[in-house]
Simulated scan of single mutants.
Amino acid sequence: MNAAIPLPLAEPQPLARTCKQDADKLARQLRRQVGKAIADFGMIEDGDKLMVCLSGGKDSYAMLDVLLQLQKKAPIAFSITAVNLDQKQPGFPDHVLPDYLRSIGVDFHIIEQDTYSVVSRVIPAGKTMCSLCSRLRRGALYAHADRHGFSKIALGHHRDDIVNTFFLNLFFHAKSGGMPPKLLSDDGRHVVIRPLAYVRESDIEAYAEVKQFPIIPCNLCGSQENLQRAQVKKMLAQWERDTPGRIENISRALGNVCPSQLSDPNLFDFPSLGKRCDAALPDAHAWLAGDEMKID
């Protein structure tokens, strides 16, 4: 009796094709969301010289990657330069970003500024470093943009960062404000854009895994467990588990503001609402300290 001939093993190609299809679908989704954000907020103009800030984290890698894809088919011409601020953190692998950027043929600048020592010296042990670190980092990036004539500064904040910042301001600073997709600096000299404003962090995580970006972990602020931002992020994650889609609704609400249904007199002219005559209205001092009025 002839021995049974074993059946051939299933070829792995269909699975590989499926993975590639999923990756391509995710890439298309990110391009669509970034393209929509660019169009909705007028982030990039013809002739722009774009400074793309690259930290070594998943968000900035994804931002650079998607912008490079869009640049190839964009209806306008603009340049991209990746810029990294080497803050001289101990153990920082300073070869990773240059090696990666050379491998993909992207123009890049590395700024060297020892902000780590400044923050470590000024901030007491156990206290959050984010505020001072952010100011020093922003100052270094703005100065570099000035020196090299960049017209836009692109940061890798995504949809979840924007929602997170809104609640940070709400809970800890008594302010209804957040992180706008496009921002003019206080001195009017720099335009900051956030092309990932519509992109979910979970999609960026999946994309970074597919692309195998050489992620550099942050051991300065990202490792601090007592951050207010970490508390808010944990809260939002629980909300999303309890009610999927809630963060997306909050994100949309930030772009659907009704000033007359809030309480900021600088944002909406409440005193003129329903006013019956042109006489000036009494101010708060008159209401609180004035004499009793005689009513016939």
Score class of each variant (00 low, 15 high):
residue 52 V to R: 13
residue 7 L to R: 02
residue 122 V to G: 09
residue 7 L to N: 11
residue 56 G to T: 05
residue 170 L to E: 04
residue 237 A to Y: 09
residue 213 F to H: 10
residue 83 V to Q: 04
residue 72 K to L: 02
residue 68 L to W: 10
residue 186 D to F: 02
residue 45 E to G: 02
residue 31 R to F: 01
residue 161 D to K: 14
residue 266 N to S: 13
residue 33 Q to Y: 11
residue 176 S to R: 07
residue 215 I to G: 05
residue 206 A to M: 07
residue 129 M to L: 09
residue 17 R to T: 14
residue 264 D to H: 08
residue 159 R to G: 02
residue 172 F to W: 06
residue 293 M to Q: 15
residue 223 S to G: 13
residue 283 D to L: 12
residue 15 L to D: 07
residue 202 S to A: 14
residue 90 P to V: 00
residue 33 Q to C: 10
residue 227 L to R: 07
residue 277 C to V: 12
residue 165 T to I: 02
residue 129 M to H: 15
residue 131 S to D: 09
residue 211 K to L: 08
residue 222 G to T: 15
residue 88 K to D: 14
residue 280 A to C: 10
residue 199 V to A: 01
residue 89 Q to N: 01
residue 71 Q to W: 03
residue 258 C to I: 09
residue 37 A to L: 00
residue 167 F to T: 00
residue 248 E to V: 15
residue 27 A to M: 13
residue 123 I to Y: 01
residue 50 L to N: 05
residue 228 Q to M: 09
residue 200 R to Q: 10
residue 62 A to I: 11
residue 140 A to V: 07
residue 139 G to I: 03
residue 175 K to F: 04
residue 286 A to E: 08
residue 186 D to A: 14
residue 261 Q to I: 13
residue 202 S to I: 13
residue 235 M to F: 04
residue 106 V to E: 15
residue 232 V to Y: 03
residue 211 K to W: 07
residue 127 K to G: 01
residue 295 I to S: 14
residue 38 I to F: 00
residue 205 E to H: 04
residue 275 K to V: 06
residue 206 A to W: 15
residue 231 Q to I: 12
residue 157 H to Q: 06
residue 63 M to Y: 06
residue 168 L to Q: 05
residue 185 S to L: 15
residue 231 Q to Y: 10
residue 202 S to D: 14
residue 131 S to R: 03
residue 212 Q to R: 12
residue 112 E to L: 11
residue 193 I to S: 11
residue 175 K to Y: 13
residue 96 V to P: 10
residue 15 L to V: 06
residue 282 P to L: 15
residue 229 R to K: 01
residue 210 V to M: 05
residue 229 R to C: 01
residue 229 R to P: 08
residue 190 H to V: 11
residue 128 T to R: 01
residue 259 P to T: 11
residue 127 K to V: 04
residue 222 G to C: 04
residue 156 G to F: 12
residue 195 P to A: 01
residue 230 A to C: 14
residue 263 S to N: 14
residue 81 T to G: 05
residue 154 A to P: 12
residue 245 G to T: 05
residue 84 N to A: 03
residue 158 H to T: 07
residue 249 N to T: 13
residue 272 S to R: 05
residue 214 P to G: 08
residue 45 E to C: 14
residue 177 G to A: 11
residue 194 R to I: 01
residue 125 A to P: 12
residue 101 L to K: 14
residue 261 Q to E: 05
residue 212 Q to K: 01
residue 69 Q to D: 06
residue 45 E to Q: 14
residue 197 A to H: 11
residue 144 H to M: 03
residue 123 I to H: 02
residue 143 A to N: 07
residue 287 W to Q: 04
residue 135 R to C: 06
residue 28 R to T: 12
residue 165 T to D: 08
residue 138 R to L: 15
residue 1 M to T: 11
residue 71 Q to D: 02
residue 179 M to R: 02
residue 264 D to F: 06
residue 240 E to G: 05
residue 117 S to R: 01
residue 158 H to S: 05
residue 23 A to P: 03
residue 27 A to C: 03
residue 242 D to S: 10
residue 171 F to C: 10
residue 30 L to I: 02
residue 173 H to C: 04
residue 150 F to Y: 07
residue 83 V to W: 14
residue 148 H to V: 00
residue 171 F to K: 09
residue 209 E to N: 09
residue 38 I to M: 00
residue 68 L to K: 10
residue 226 N to P: 02
residue 19 C to I: 09
residue 22 D to T: 02
residue 4 A to C: 13
residue 21 Q to G: 13
residue 70 L to R: 03
